[in-house]
């Protein structure tokens, strides 16, 4: 098992054997993952949602998160797949309707390359947190503030309520005001 970073793991998750067999419809891509601690182990919960590029700038449709895949880190043991269409907490969500537009305000000025670079940087922060939690690597207030800042720029505002519903702690730490 190669030592992949969280970023790389998430970016290639669609072809992971387990994920393939979850049979999510074509077009569902991984969103920003959620870090959580279960039974003292670090876990990564990757939400899946879809986007539709309409060719109009800032009118790319954002659809609700519909599936999540959870694995332990760094072992990447798959511990869960959930289909939110069957989760009573998400009963009010119409997964076939878009819930927002991209680019949102915080990133309106960013071109594709710039946005992707910042998103990659954000994903790199996840590895920093993992290193701090698992190896006791240095992690300061500044690091955390940086991650929070990036998160709040990159994350589409229309997804906030869904992240809050998925993991209150993660939401509270990185997304809440």
């Amino acid at each position: 098992m190669s030592k992949l970073s969280i970023r790389e793991t998430v970016q290639h998750i669609n072809t992971h054997d387990f994920v393939l067999h979850c049979n999510m419809p074509l077009g569902y891509v991984p969103g920003l993952p959620i870090l959580k601690i279960i039974h003292d182990e670090l876990c990564l919960q990757v939400p899946f949602l879809k986007y539709k590029v309409t060719g109009q700038p800032d009118q790319t449709l954002v659809y609700p998160i519909r599936y999540t895949v959870t694995m332990t880190w760094p072992e990447k043991k798959m511990i869960g797949f959930s289909n939110l269409s069957y989760d009573p907490a998400f009963a009010q969500v119409d997964f076939s309707k878009a819930i927002g537009f991209f680019r949102h305000d915080a990133v309106k000025h960013m071109k594709k390359a710039e946005y992707r670079a910042m998103r990659d940087e954000l994903l790199d922060q996840y590895d920093k947190v993992a290193a701090a939690l698992l190896e006791g690597a240095e992690y300061t207030q500044e690091d955390e503030a940086h991650m929070r800042r990036l998160m709040q720029i990159i994350m589409e505002p229309s997804l906030y309520p869904l992240y809050q519903a998925l993991d209150q702690d993660f939401y509270g730490k990185y997304l809440a005001e």
């Binding site: 669609n14 569902y28 891509v29 879809k50 539709k52 109009q56 991209f102 071109k111 998103r119």
Partner: peptide
């Protein structure tokens, strides 16, 4: 499909790319 039909765009893109069409 977005990229097939619209091509690359600096301003009209999705946060994450994925294949949605066969």
């Amino acid at each position: 499909s977005g990229e097939i039909w619209e091509g690359e765009s600096d301003n009209a893109f999705a946060p994450v790319d994925g294949a949605d069409h066969a």
